[in-house]
């Protein structure tokens, strides 16, 4: 299935600031459910003026602990997002990949 579903971030946050952890968790759950069901996801950042890593780590970063990096990149698209915010997204992605890599290495060591 290749259908894309749009998630409007502002509709979940209800404000221009994407900063709240609970909102991040809601978005994470929606994305996870859609990927599990083989959908593509469009994250629409229309009307979002402030975006922080604490929010993105929850909404997006923790997906890298559930799915393969390539799968995430092929399934999630970012729309209506500024270059500055996309830079933050990329920092969160890089950090998340390193975080889960380190975690799996530690788990291997323990075994």
């Amino acid at each position: 299935m290749e259908k894309s579903i749009r998630i409007n971030i502002y509709n979940i946050t209800g404000q221009h600031d994407a900063i709240n952890s609970d909102d991040g968790e809601k978005i994470y759950s929606k994305i996870k459910e859609l990927i599990d069901k083989d959908y593509n996801v469009i994250l629409d950042f229309s009307n979002i003026t402030h975006l922080i890593t604490a929010f993105l780590n929850i909404a997006y970063g923790q997906l890298f602990g559930q799915f393969d990096e390539k799968l995430i990149e092929s399934r999630i698209a970012f729309e209506n997002i500024s270059d500055e915010d996309l830079y933050t997204v990329n920092r969160v992605r890089k950090n998340a990949i390193e975080f889960f890599l380190k975690k799996s290495q530690e788990q291997t060591k323990e075994k």
Partner: peptide, 19 residues
């Protein structure tokens, strides 16, 4: 320092202070 976080669990962290 980047990537250092005391957070335990499945949520990455450690970027806020670095940025």
């Amino acid at each position: 320092e980047e990537s250092n976080t005391t957070r335990i669990g499945e949520i990455p962290g450690g970027l806020g202070l670095k940025l």
